[in-house]
Amino acid sequence: MQLELNNISLTYAISTPYETKALSDVSFSAKKGEFIAVMGQTGSGKSTLLKIIAGLEKPSSGTVFFNGEDINAYSYNKAKLRSYVGMVFQNPEYQLFESSVYKDVAFGLKHAEYTKDEKHRRVKNALETVGFEFDKIKDLSPLALSGGEKRRVAIAGVLAAEPELILFDEPVAGLDPVGRNDFVNTVKKLNKAGITIIMVSHNADAIAECAERILIFDNTKLIKDAPAAKVFADSKTLKNIGLEVNGAKYLADLLKKRGMCIDDKLYRYEEIVKAVAEKIKNAGVGK
């Protein structure tokens, strides 16, 4: 898996009164196994970026190379790209339509030339990855499930193609805390298995828990591309573009203002808890 974007720009409805710029001059690259989070305010071009990587939108200018091939070249086989790059849209539960969960998850495999056994293995594997018991769920109607379950079925539908790169657009929006934790654990597991993840999210907590690298978009431009620790260490820059740090880091910043010195590099929930506990222990409890 090797992804490379060079000077991507996209303008919708060129030369009509509805002309709008969605992305301007964005370049970055991603390697196998990376976990990249994309942050930015609504309308900063994040979702468009994902669609361009998935080959669903054509950039007005610039090139996208996937495994060394230009995906917008005339001779490039887009159907092949779909099996390498999976995309989970915002509210993916709305795309379910088949009469059973099994059929819905297998939908994307219909055109691929797999044997029946292979298809079965993939569907089973995908459903188990998102935390279902295969035999219990496979014959249910996807439309009768709860919102969170529908979303997991939709994600399984993307996993069944066994992509090398998965793009998530706001995967935790509208989920309860338990659902969010489940999701975070699932993507972490996928990432550990070697799948590259690019995830757009407004949820700083989810990002802090799993992302290693963060891209920040502001007003159609890529303004920062840095390791997660570096981005969260600098909460002022985040605030300036209308974004927030995660809850744990926010707490650390508050404690720092009150005089408890916590290393700026720490930002994950567990790290902060550990650091605070240590400080308290060193200071002597009940002083």
């Binding site: 709305y94 055109h111 691929a112």
Partner: peptide
């Protein structure tokens, strides 16, 4: 707009 999104979502998971 939503129809376009759903079309893209289904295309992304292999619809032709």
């Amino acid at each position: 707009q939503e129809a376009l999104l759903i079309k893209q979502a289904q295309t992304a998971r292999g619809a032709r």
